[in-house]
Amino acid sequence: SPEVQIAILTEQINNLNEHLRVHKKDHHSRRGLLKMVGKRRRLLAYLRNKDVARYREIVEKLG
């Protein structure tokens, strides 16, 4: 489901952010981070168009 995919991506994004705080010059990982953020944004847009209630619920849960 989109909610699960968004939750997994959010966790991976948070982990990668911590990694990049330590390894500032790791541009390869930064590119992966940007791809993940874009994918999460697309999934959220899809969910917002399909079911606003589910969209609001996941945004509330994940912050």
Rank of each mutant, 00 (worst) to 15 (best):
S1W: 15
K24T: 12
M36W: 02
L16I: 07
R42V: 09
R48A: 08
A53V: 10
E11P: 01
R31N: 07
L20C: 05
L47T: 00
V59D: 01
E3S: 04
G32T: 15
E57M: 06
L9F: 03
N14Y: 07
S29V: 13
M36Y: 06
H23L: 03
E18H: 09
L20I: 09
R30I: 12
Q5F: 06
A45P: 15
V4A: 13
D26H: 09
V52P: 15
E60C: 09
Y46N: 11
N17D: 05
K39D: 11
P2H: 07
L34T: 05
H23C: 09
L16Y: 05
L34D: 05
L16N: 01
Q5S: 06
T10P: 00
G32L: 15
I8V: 07
N14I: 10
K50T: 15
I6Y: 02
L9M: 04
M36K: 06
R40D: 01
L44Y: 02
R54N: 03
E60Q: 08
I6A: 00
L47V: 06
A53S: 10
L62I: 11
T10C: 05
I8H: 08
A7M: 15
L33Q: 02
E11G: 05
I6E: 01
R40Y: 05
G38E: 15
E18Q: 09
D26T: 05
L44R: 01
S1G: 09
T10L: 05
Y46L: 10
A53M: 10
N17A: 14
K25V: 05
N17M: 15
L34N: 07
R41N: 14
M36N: 02
N14W: 08
K39Q: 15
N17I: 15
E57L: 06
N14H: 08
R30F: 10
I58N: 01
L9E: 01
K50Y: 14
D51M: 03
K61V: 10
I13H: 01
T10F: 04
I8C: 10
R42Y: 08
V52L: 14
V59P: 01
G32Y: 15
N15K: 15
Q12F: 08
N17Q: 14
Q12E: 06
R31Y: 09
L47F: 02
T10E: 03
K50W: 09
I13A: 00
N15D: 08
L62Q: 03
N17L: 15
H23Q: 05
G32C: 15
P2M: 14
V52H: 10
T10Y: 03
I13Q: 01
S1L: 07
H19K: 07
I8G: 03
I8W: 15
H28N: 11
L16M: 09
L47Y: 01
K50P: 01
K39E: 15
P2R: 04
K61C: 08
K25I: 06
V52Q: 11
E3H: 03
Y55E: 02
R54H: 06
G63D: 07
R48K: 12
K61F: 09
N49K: 12
K24I: 09
N15A: 14
R42S: 07
R21I: 05
R40C: 06
L44E: 00
R41Q: 09
K50L: 15
L34E: 08
R54S: 09
H19C: 07
V59K: 04
G63F: 15
L43P: 00
L34I: 10
V22C: 13
L62K: 02
I8L: 12
